[in-house]
Design a protein around this nucleic acid. Structure first.
Lengths: 222, 222
DNA sequence: ATTATTTTTTAGACTAATCTAAATTATTTT
DNA sequence: AAAATAATTTAGATTAGTCTAAAAAATAAT
């Protein structure tokens, strides 16, 4: 079994590997974990001894299959708990992250299996992120950022790439919710802001900073 | 905030104080925590510095009001989570203790409040133990051990004082469930075993070892 | 292609929680 | 009441995770 800290490092490395497939740097991990590089180096040695990562000094780091499996299990637990908090306990989607960061470390395979069943074997969490299955497989329904959607075309909001409460609260206030249909009316060249129509009703103007953090599917979501 | 280990010591001291109101001994704690007396002594100093216990060398230990409040909050969380596991996730009552020991340390007052609401503000956990309220108040409906119930009198099963899976599984197999009506037909002097009738139907003979771990209320439980 | 800068690692130290062994205090026995 | 026994505390060591400061390696700049 791994310690809570080890689990958090694995999760962090997995998360970083989504954007940088090769050689995650020590400083990137230190940054994400809000700790110092020296601390990270020590932990990398430990994880390497356990064969959870492949680590070469001064080069960078990559999860092994074993490490990836553990990381995906933590992600699965995190997302199932987030959905539970929203669905069963009526939390709002911007309030659940911190609590799920604790719950994701509870050790019990039976518990995860039953939670999954309780929620009806969901495919995505409250932010639209896919929930890995028991084997760590992720159902990916190739999404694109709203900022990349062509003018005059449509899609549904399927997720977000930014999870801060302030961003999520902004979306909520603006009526931009998971599953909403979005039609791009016009894209403005100079600042990359766009005019959109939500659910064929409400018109709205949003900045590129917002648009690039909203994920769109051109098929039915969920 | 207190560490997980500190929380477990407080919970342990609280638990022991129910049977031994004054001066919990170092060795009793070491026994319960499955650790060594020297380790306990160190922790007692630490908890004493934080004013969570009153500690006098070579004498023993007692929770302060502050310490008791924290202990009761952990007990509250433990019992709410146990009930959640049984009610919502269909766990059996002998499977929930180990998982609840982890869940009880999740830090979020909002989470407890919502869990409590989700469960309908319950008064007792799946073992019949009372759930302390937000202020740490425990509703006590003065229970007696089945072994103390007089011959020819009746009551309902309201709880247990032993939580091991083997004991709970035995009860289940025998049809001795929370809320069942028990009538004492005869008490045998030589081995203190008793003959009972369950729910005015099934007759049964049980040993004193079993009877003394079953709690009875003479009024309606719950 | 040297030099300067940045990144990474090593070395040494600290805290929390634990242990064993030795010393101290309390309790029990005779 | 003194000796024997049991319980408790102290002393010193260990492991996990963290830090700062210094050394080493890699990268960037002139």
């Amino acid at each position: 079994m791994n310690t809570l800290t080890e689990e958090n490092y694995l999760k962090c490395i997995y998360k970083l590997s989504l954007n940088t497939p090769e050689g995650i740097t020590t400083s990137a991990i230190a940054d994400e974990m809000k700790t110092k590089s020296a601390t990270v180096t020590d932990m990398l040695k430990k994880l390497s001894d356990k064969e959870l990562i492949k680590y070469e000094k001064y080069y960078g780091v990559k999860l092994t299959e074993k490490g990836k499996k553990i990381a995906l299990k933590i992600v699965r637990k995190h997302r199932l708990w987030e959905l539970f908090l929203v669905k069963a306990l009526d939390f709002k989607w911007d309030e659940v992250h911190i609590i799920a960061e604790q719950l994701e470390h509870i050790q019990s395979d039976e518990l995860i299996a039953r939670l999954d069943k309780f929620l009806g074997h969901p495919k995505t969490d409250p932010h639209g992120d896919p929930i890995p299955d028991q084997n760590g497989k992720i159902f990916s329904n190739h999404l694109i950022a709203l900022s990349e959607l062509a003018q005059k075309s449509s899609g549904e909001i399927a997720g977000v790439t930014e999870h801060s409460p302030s961003f999520l609260q902004y979306l909520e206030k603006s009526g931009l919710n998971l599953g909403n249909n979005i039609h791009v009316i016009e894209k403005h060249e100079f600042d990359k802001s766009i005019d959109i129509k939500i659910n064929r009703k409400k018109n709205m103007h949003i900045s590129n900073d917002i648009a690039k953090n909203i994920l769109i599917t051109t098929h039915e979501p969920k």
